[in-house]
Design a binder for these strands. Structure first.
Lengths: 156, 156
DNA sequence: TCTTGCTCCTACAGTTACTATAGCATGTAT
DNA sequence: ATACATGCTATAGTAACTGTAGGAGCAAGA
């Protein structure tokens, strides 16, 4: 029942790269994998879930530190409500802001596609739409994230 | 009327760092700034807009290459429809997938906050909710992004 | 049995997108 | 005149990967 597989299979099933998985183990967001007799890392379905979660979150601009917090919520079900509440509320706001900005981008893209009737496009308002002081004000950017790198995004 | 200011002011007004702006000039996503008599870079409102756009996009996980494409749509209004269409459609899908995943995250966060009534949380379903095979299947992750680093997110 | 080929291992170098720091010049405030 | 902030260039460091070198393990075919 509890199917086991190696790192290459895990990489395939989560659409990530083998060195990335080893890197996640090294920095502690993935657990230290149990080794088979031949020293190879063995994984199960739970590892797919965890890795999927990490990859989705990274693709959306969450840092590995953010992700560590979120994973902690899941890893330690005996957190107090205050802790959960703080992390979850923080992230909820973060998520909602991202959705708001993405929705503006979405509308602008749709407008651009819609406007394309075979002639040349006379004016592209995407920057104005997104960087406009008024809009920026409305979205009320507040807090800040940390460093990333080389996201192979699952979200396209 | 056309107010001019230096790099520190631009950094303040866009909530970015001075070296980041110089870096963006170096790699060509910001234009080569016109220098004052004393060799200092001078900026105007248009630079704020462009930089805001770049920062917002980065915070949402778009790469500088993605952003270059988007900026090109705005910089060269004489693109053919085919070009605009291709870039815009590509990005539209990308954006919509990000929104779908963020919406799942949002609901899960709300559920967690809602469940918190002063006792201990018995079970956190966030990872299950987000990494579940069924859900991942439903979201149908397809294409991929590229590298990032050190995003100071405007979106919180 | 040998060997071709695939996947695994470790370890380290390279990439992207910044961020910080050093060392010096310029401008403003006292 | 001197202090101090800000600008400049140049270079090094960081985060989050990605690629590659060099070697081991195992399965299937010649």
């Amino acid at each position: 029942m509890t199917e086991e597989f190696m790192i290459g299979e895990l990489a395939k099933r989560t659409d990530s790269k083998v060195p990335t998985i080893r890197y996640y183990e090294q920095i502690g967001v993935m657990p230290t994998a149990i080794r088979a007799h031949n020293n190879r890392r063995m994984y199960r379905n739970s590892h797919i879930k965890r890795l999927m979660f990490i990859r989705h979150s990274r693709a959306l601009g969450f840092t590995l530190d953010d992700i560590r917090d979120l994973l902690a919520l899941s890893d330690q079900p005996n957190h107090t409500c205050a802790e959960v509440d703080k992390i979850a509320k923080n992230n909820l706001e973060n998520i909602q802001k991202k959705i708001r900005v993405l929705s503006i981008m979405e509308k602008e893209m749709q407008r651009m596609i819609f406007q394309c009737h075979g002639e040349k496009v006379s004016e592209c308002l995407i920057i104005t739409a997104l960087a406009d002081h008024a809009i920026a004000e409305k979205i009320k950017m507040t807090t800040s994230e940390k460093n990333d790198a080389t996201i192979t995004n699952h979200l396209g």
